[in-house]
Computed example of a mutant assay.
Amino acid sequence: MSRRGNTHTYSIRRLQSLLGVSRRVVIALVEAGFVDPERGRRNEMRFSFRDVVLLRTAYKLQNAKIPTRKILRSLAAISDEMPAGEVSLAGLRISAVGNEVAVGSGPARWVADSRQMLLDFGSAPVAADVSFLGRRARVEMDRASLADEWYERAERLREEDFTAAEQAYRKAIELSPAPHYSAYTNLGVHLCEDEGRCADALAVFDAALRLFPDDTRLLFNRGVALEQLHENEAAALSYERCLAIDPEYIDAHFNLARLKQLRGDEQGVLRHLSAYRRLGGI
């Protein structure tokens, strides 16, 4: 359904960030047929700017209880009327009016799939109004794409150039218009690989947790960094917070059992080792 009118592509991770939805939701939208993403060198899905616009609109219309079949038919009708290669669709307003998908341009408004004009009496309820992204959002997406390039560069550099990889992760964080979860997480882990940089890693995890306060992976990695700094009490608290959110986080149980053993807390050791084994640990 989507047309490849531009060369900018976005990873599924960046698309999640831009749309503010989970990976599961993105996959469901793709499987519903709203877009047909291209495949990258490693067979990963790559999305165009137009894909982002269409998926954002489809997601909002779904939330307004418009049936998937009607959304598909309406977006196809809108897409077919755009000039070849058109990407931005700026100036169009897409909204759910009752059970219909309405399109607005200037003062005019019509039903997307039938072209029937709608009269605006000033009192009709409009659910989930969706404006297509304009220039400002497009600039943000260009920055997001550039941030992803720096992140992917950091991933490639991790094994061969520690300093260059760190700089690339930080550049991805700096450029990303939305908090770049993976760049924060992997930068912290990267810094932890150098025992002399564990304090720096802790600072990264703390900054990330201000943005993602209930993320168990960040809490676990923060505990690891604190252990390497010999701050075992603080590390145990971080693991416990992780388990309060996800009681089945197996590695947190193992590390906490070890810390409980250092404190001589045999009941704590037994409790967390039992949970570790119940969840599949050896």
Rank of each mutant, 00 (worst) to 15 (best):
L92H: 02
R42M: 09
W150M: 11
C198Q: 10
Q167Y: 07
Q116E: 14
S182N: 09
V21Q: 03
A236Q: 06
V101F: 04
V26A: 04
G280P: 09
G264N: 06
F212Y: 13
A112L: 04
V52L: 15
D36R: 13
A124Y: 08
K260D: 10
Y10D: 01
D251E: 15
R153E: 11
L187C: 02
R138E: 15
A124P: 00
R156S: 11
L15C: 09
A235V: 05
R4W: 08
R277Y: 11
F220K: 03
L89G: 05
L29H: 12
V189A: 09
E266F: 12
F212D: 00
T68K: 12
R277V: 15
S17K: 14
V87Q: 14
E31N: 15
M82A: 15
V35R: 07
V35A: 09
G264I: 10
R258S: 13
R41Q: 12
D36A: 13
A96M: 06
A64V: 03
F34E: 01
F121G: 10
L211N: 07
K60M: 06
G280C: 02
P213L: 02
E155I: 06
I245G: 09
H180T: 09
G40A: 09
H8Q: 14
R241Y: 03
S79C: 09
E195D: 14
D148G: 14
S176G: 00
R156Y: 07
E195V: 09
I12Q: 12
S123V: 14
D51W: 05
D120C: 01
G188Q: 04
M1V: 09
R24T: 13
P247Y: 08
P125E: 10
D113Y: 10
I250H: 11
P107W: 05
E140D: 15
V126W: 00
V30D: 03
L15I: 11
G223A: 05
D206H: 08
E233W: 06
L211R: 14
L229F: 10
G40V: 00
I173T: 05
I78R: 06
P213W: 00
L191E: 05
A108T: 10
R241S: 12
V87I: 15
E86R: 08
P107M: 02
Y181M: 02
R263F: 07
S182C: 08
S48P: 04
F212M: 08
A28G: 13
A183Y: 07
E140R: 12
R109Q: 11
L209Q: 07
V103M: 01
P125K: 06
L118R: 02
A124V: 15
L15N: 02
E38V: 11
E193D: 13
I173W: 01
L237A: 15
V87P: 08
M82S: 12
E248R: 12
L218R: 00
E149N: 09
R46Q: 15
M141P: 01
F34C: 01
S145F: 08
G281N: 05
A207G: 03
F220Q: 05
A172N: 06
E240R: 14
L72W: 00
V21R: 08
A244V: 02
S48N: 05
G5M: 11
A178F: 12
A108K: 14
L18P: 01
E227Y: 01
